[in-house]
Design a protein around this nucleic acid. Sequence first.
DNA 1: GTTGACGTTTACGTTAACGTAAACTTCAAT
DNA 2: ATTGAAGTTTACGTTAACGTAAACGTCAAC
Lengths: 133, 133
Amino acid sequence: MNATATNSADNYSISELAQEFGITTRTIRFYEDKGLISPERRGQTRVYSPEDRVRLKLILRGKRLGFSLDESREIIDMYDPAHGNVEQLNRLLERIESKREQLRQQQRDIEKMLAQLDDATARTQAALKEHRN
Amino acid sequence: MNATATNSADNYSISELAQEFGITTRTIRFYEDKGLISPERRGQTRVYSPEDRVRLKLILRGKRLGFSLDESREIIDMYDPAHGNVEQLNRLLERIESKREQLRQQQRDIEKMLAQLDDATARTQAALKEHRN
DNA sequence: GTTGACGTTTACGTTAACGTAAACTTCAAT
DNA sequence: ATTGAAGTTTACGTTAACGTAAACGTCAAC
């Protein structure tokens, strides 16, 4: 046990992340292949930083919302406006607003679907009461 | 022009629905193939009722939320508790509640992502102000 | 009577997002 | 020295959700 350990403390192995998020290592490597994560390497081995972990979290959040990996990448990249020139920044603002609109549409869709499920519950319970005869 | 027209008034052709919802006829036929819609036939030709149209609407709503066609079919079928026996009805109630939970998770995901987009907007606008020097 | 516009079936092609398997390395432990 | 757990690359396989194209029927319009 050295004072300056080889692992910089708050790093993760690929299997640690896989287990934490309930996915396979294959999936994580696939995301790297698609350019969504870029972990460091200790020799051959991948070493994931807390930032990498956050990116993974964002990808999975996107997945739960039905986003493609390309869409998730886009959204993640929006958080970093290092993309210099003014025109690009303005287009970025538009794309952000567009995504916001899409999310608001999803909110409306969820509301309607939840109402539909309330209906379904009521109908099913009614059918159950029917059965008590 | 006969008084009792061949088309029962409020029915739709496949291309009408396709245009209304911005999808292709191929897509609609595909949904039928997967058992999501079952339009009537006037000879060979498909004739869609208002109920068919509603089902289509629900499918597309599911799509916007990232649901697979199988999931959408499940949700749609939840609305009709014709599935007799008590045990099945109880399992149905569980599946409904499960879906509700999933939708609530999506709501949380959307909230976080919207907050993230607010951040992104602020950062981008800051980057733009930087550019005015 | 042929030309469109619209419909049909059948079938092969395509893309995304991984799964699965093979073949290999590294390293700590027995 | 070998085993076992975890890592790696390479590559072929799979499923969902359509796209695309071919080949054909139908019917009102010119």
